[in-house]
Computed example of a mutant assay.
Amino acid sequence: MSGQQESQGETLDAYDIGQIMEAIPHRYPMLLVDRIVDVVLGERATGVKNVTVNENFFQGHFPRHPVMPGVLIIESMAQTAAVLVVKTLGPSAHGKLVYFMTVENAKFRKPVVPGDQLRIHVVKERQRGNVWKFAAEAKVDGVVVAEATYAAMILDK
């Protein structure tokens, strides 16, 4: 993507981990998206999170029955949306952060366990000024494991 002008509505292939880390400030252990694929700037994206037994949260959630905490699934949705927002805004997003405002209608349908690959589908519902609203679903093997709608605000650091 470097050296290439991106515009809203443009369909892109993917953002790798390096490009994700350029777009959002999250780092281990809070970086919860490994790749962004199927990107349409200003509209939608799909994030990928490979869930491994080495994740630090599995030590305590739960030691003999590891389950990814639902709140971290929601966070992976938010991070996927944040990359979409930052990449959509382009250079005007430099020096800005994306903050959660609301989470609504969160549902957790099936546990996410080590070995699963989360595919996080986010769709922009609307944007008003610096507030963006998204609908998201997280799937494992094509089955919805979680869903939510949420809003985020883009602010200076």
Rank of each mutant, 00 (worst) to 15 (best):
V48R: 12
G142Q: 08
V83D: 09
V33W: 07
V67K: 02
L32G: 06
M153I: 15
L32Q: 08
V86W: 02
F108G: 05
K124H: 01
G60D: 13
Q127G: 03
Q5R: 07
F62K: 04
G129L: 13
T11H: 14
S2Y: 08
Q5S: 09
P114V: 11
V40C: 12
L12Y: 09
F134N: 01
F108A: 08
H61M: 05
A23S: 14
V143M: 00
M21I: 13
E75C: 11
D156W: 02
T52V: 12
R44K: 15
V112A: 05
T102W: 11
F58S: 02
V122D: 06
I120P: 04
V51Y: 06
A146S: 14
L41D: 02
D16R: 09
P69M: 07
E147T: 07
Q59D: 14
Q4F: 09
V53E: 10
Q19E: 15
D116Q: 10
E43L: 11
R64G: 15
A45Q: 11
I36N: 01
L32C: 06
T11V: 15
L155H: 14
A136Q: 03
H121D: 15
E10F: 00
A45S: 10
P63L: 06
I24E: 08
T52A: 11
G9D: 01
F57R: 04
H65N: 15
V37R: 13
R64M: 13
I120Y: 08
I73M: 08
G9V: 04
K157H: 12
Q19M: 08
I154S: 06
G47M: 12
N130I: 10
A45C: 07
I73F: 02
G3Y: 11
R35N: 11
Y15F: 15
A148K: 01
L31S: 03
K107E: 13
V103A: 08
A82P: 03
P66C: 08
R109H: 13
H65M: 11
F108K: 00
Y15N: 00
R35F: 06
A136N: 06
R119F: 09
I73S: 03
A45V: 08
V39E: 12
E137L: 08
V112K: 01
V131K: 06
E10Q: 15
T80V: 13
K139N: 08
Q127V: 14
H61I: 07
V145N: 07
G42D: 06
T80M: 10
K124Y: 11
G60C: 05
E43P: 02
L31E: 04
A148L: 02
E104W: 01
M68Q: 03
G47D: 11
F108M: 09
V39F: 09
G95L: 07
A45P: 06
Y99F: 15
V39C: 04
V71D: 05
M30F: 15
K87Q: 15
L89F: 14
I20Y: 05
V71P: 05
Q117T: 15
V113W: 00
T46N: 12
F57G: 04
F134P: 01
I17T: 02
V53G: 09
